[in-house]
Design a protein around this nucleic acid. Structure first.
Lengths: 165, 165
DNA sequence: ACCAGATATTTTAAGTGTCAATCTTCTGGA
DNA sequence: TCCAGAAGATTGACACTTAAAATATCTGGT
């Protein structure tokens, strides 16, 4: 996982810039700590209950709705990770017999990755659990609050994209 | 980082569980993608502008407000990462002469880590930039929206903590 | 004084992540 | 046809991450 940390909160108190400044930083740290905690819990569960990892789960999720499979490049684009990274994860999934990688098109550079039957069945089980875990973590948040959050986070996303520099 | 991904959105459409279910998953994925994008941008900037990494920045941030330094254990507790992890990061910071690790108390098991003068100065510069980057990314979010988000995220955090299982 | 267990830290093994270099295969113009 | 460069994928070097094993040191009870 990922990385850290919620402690950049540290220097927040110092460095008094514009009033807006401190708020952005504090909001960012709160956002970060929420998603880190949720993600960490999912990782632990995935390991405990299915002896797998989040990246492997993510690859399988991307493949699950593509019966015809995805090329390595499509996979890395879908997951927003580097090409070389996908190679390693797919290799491990192949060892576990959860996916296959074949060269079948006319272009022999292109490798297509596909879930096996075992992979599909395994993923179904994992996805059901995953959904339950997330549900449970958000159980204390009302539908109205979730809707609010969806909207506000869309705004954040928009702000980020708008200020690409 | 690491890690991924915003594409678990994939299977969200299938697996129609309770109506609340799908919302949690979608909210979680939106939360995740926001924080991943922000974090990635900070990583890139830190590398481009200061040839450093986010974990190193985080360690320095934790040390910055502790003139007397922190032990390795205090550091890993503050950053919410494993003990062994901190060892490697601090080693690299030592090579860069940004921190020092000394054994000074009566207990020779305990190593104290402290920013050097160079480390302190370097961190000040980095923190100022870091703050600007975050500010800019949130520039399109109003103060009212930020306040709302703070409140709602506190609720999320509370919900997560309440449903530890 | 001794030594069993506790505590602080480092080391190790395996996975994830990046970028840059390399390998293979294709493609389009001369 | 031929070949320079583009495109898909893997490999290698490095950094980060964890959990578990190994080291080193301390502490308290006998």
């Amino acid at each position: 996982m990922p990385n850290s940390t919620a402690t950049r909160r540290a220097f927040t108190e110092k460095l008094g810039g514009a009033p807006h400044s401190k708020s952005s930083l504090r909001l960012w740290l709160r956002l970060l700590s929420c998603s880190m905690i949720i993600e960490r819990r999912i990782r632990v569960r995935l390991e405990e209950d299915f002896q797998t990892t989040l990246p492997r789960f993510d690859v399988m999720a991307a493949l699950e709705r593509e019966p015809d499979g995805l090329t390595m490049s499509q996979l890395s684009a879908a997951l927003l990770v580097s090409n070389g990274n996908v190679t390693g994860i797919v290799n491990r999934l192949i060892e576990e017999l959860l996916v296959v990688r074949t060269v079948e098109s006319g272009d022999r550079r292109i490798a297509t990755v596909r879930l096996t039957r075992k992979g599909r069945e395994t993923f179904q089980r994992m996805a059901r659990s995953h959904e339950k875990w997330v549900d449970k973590m958000f159980a204390g948040v009302s539908d109205a609050q979730m809707a609010q959050l969806m909207k506000l986070l869309a705004g954040v996303r928009h702000s980020i994209d708008a200020h690409v520099d």
